[in-house]
Design a protein around this nucleic acid. Structure first.
Length: 265
DNA sequence: TTCCATGTTCCGCA
DNA sequence: TTGCGGAACATGGA
């Protein structure tokens, strides 16, 4: 689930539930999820403090800790999510980090698998730089010229390029398929052979898909039925043309595309 | 039981 | 040397 739109929805969720409340107790389990920090250090940085703001870059969510010199960093892997609750019975089943607020609320980072990451970083910018993450496509800095520049010199498939977090931060398997579907470009098209029009179409689809998906709360069932996403998982008629939706593998990932209107493979 | 999964990392190869 | 693509990783559901 957690690609850029999902993480943006998590960000807004934290903003509306968990800011400006004093953290009373910090529960940490499954320490393998911890990256830059030990459980005791994490507790020390969070206890008796408040979260004051949030930032997102690609699939990473950063939470500012009031009066502290570190930000909490959350990455959701394939199955991570957040849950805010007041009644302890509503605690999610695989909570790896729970913040108990003094007002009685709880914010839980839940992750069934161990692919996610919890860390403390100096600030979002230095983390992004240290990890060499590409620009966030919704941060306003990726206009067409910048986008073209990011694709320059890439020799693989367009799908592989778009999923590369060093090229652009935030696209994963599912939304990359959606972007290419809407742009009418085959996922196996060679990045360095794309025409200017194709690059333009991908850029346009990228902004549209991400923005619209966030508006839909990143809920698949809320997305337009002219999209690939709601039909993903079953070979059938394309909602945009007379073609058929097919499954294949690109860069080792299951890939869905229309065999008619997505050209260039 | 076997296969598959929205994530990243690692290894072999060009 | 660099970058690409597939395998591996952990865990549970279909």
């Amino acid at each position: 689930m957690p690609e850029l739109p999902d993480v943006e929805v998590f960000k807004r969720y934290v903003d509306s539930t968990s800011l400006h409340q004093t953290i009373d107790t910090v529960h940490v389990s499954a320490e393998k999820t911890l990256k830059e920090v030990s459980a005791s250090t994490l507790r020390r940085h969070l206890k008796d403090r408040e979260l004051t703001s949030t930032r997102r870059h690609g699939k990473h969510l950063f939470l500012e800790i009031e009066g502290d010199d570190r930000w909490l960093r959350l990455h959701f892997g394939m199955t991570g999510r957040l849950a805010y609750y007041e009644d302890g019975d509503d605690a999610p089943p695989h909570a790896r980090l729970v913040l108990d607020f003094r007002n009685g609320g709880h914010l839980a980072y839940d992750n069934q698998r161990r692919f996610g990451e919890i860390g403390l970083v100096e600030d979002p910018e230095s983390y992004v730089e240290a990890e060499d993450l590409g620009p966030d496509p919704l941060a306003g800095s990726v206009d067409l010229a910048r986008f073209r520049e990011r694709l320059e010199g890439r020799s693989g498939t367009i799908k592989g390029t778009l999923m590369n977090q060093q090229v652009l931060a935030g696209l994963g398997n599912v939304y990359t398929d959606e972007v290419l579907f809407q742009a009418g470009v085959h996922p196996k098209a060679a990045t360095n052979a794309l025409s200017e029009d194709r690059v333009k179409a991908i850029h346009r689809a990228l902004e549209h898909v991400l923005t619209r998906a966030i508006e839909a709360g990143a809920q698949r069932e809320e997305m337009p039925d002219t999209w690939l996403l709601p039909q993903r998982g079953e070979e059938g008629p394309c909602p945009r043309c007379d073609g058929r939706l097919r499954e294949t593998k690109v860069s080792g990932r299951t890939t869905w595309y229309c065999d008619r209107h997505q050209e260039g493979g």
